[in-house]
Design a protein around this nucleic acid. Structure first.
Length: 137
DNA sequence: GCCAACGTTGGC
DNA sequence: GCCAACGTTGGC
């Protein structure tokens, strides 16, 4: 089982919309490194859902329910893929970027090191700590 | 609104 | 293959 963090701007696609829809295709990724991460996702993997720009916080956990397939928004361009995700559990208390930056044990997160990448992997210890910070554990 | 950090594009 | 110019993301 692998852990991930996926970003969306909440005014484009928010956690609330994901909860409302039940599941969605995580489409629109147009960066090769992020695409490679999408391809590595397996059904059952868990992904922290992060709101970029507005909020700047992790708001919940989504589960991968369908592995990589051609991105329907890519207009036939075979380079780009998406996965399907479903909401698994909401954070009681969203974990802000500010909180992550203030936590010494999270300084090595890819989220911090490569802030522009929209799909990044998360280590298990980081994932567990973030869940505890979100009051999930 | 600005800027840092990347990515991409295209001329050479 | 290099690099300048430009575009994008996302934090501040």
């Amino acid at each position: 089982m692998q852990y991930w963090l996926i970003k969306s701007e909440p005014n484009v696609y928010s956690w609330e919309m994901l909860v409302q829809e039940g599941s969605t295709c995580w489409s629109g990724v147009r960066n090769y490194q992020a695409r490679n991460n999408l391809r590595l996702m397996r059904s059952g993997d868990l992904a922290l859902h992060y709101h970029s720009n507005i909020g700047k916080e992790i708001v919940g956990i989504a589960e991968v329910v369908r592995e990589a397939y051609p991105d329907p928004t890519a207009e036939g361009d075979p380079n780009w893929v998406c996965v399907d995700v479903a909401p698994k559990q909401a954070f009681v208390r969203p974990v802000r970027l500010e909180d992550i930056k203030a936590e010494p044990r999270l300084q090595k997160m890819e989220l911090i090191r490569q802030s522009r990448l929209s799909v990044v992997s998360v280590r298990e210890d980081e994932f567990n700590l973030l869940c505890a910070m979100g009051e999930m554990a």
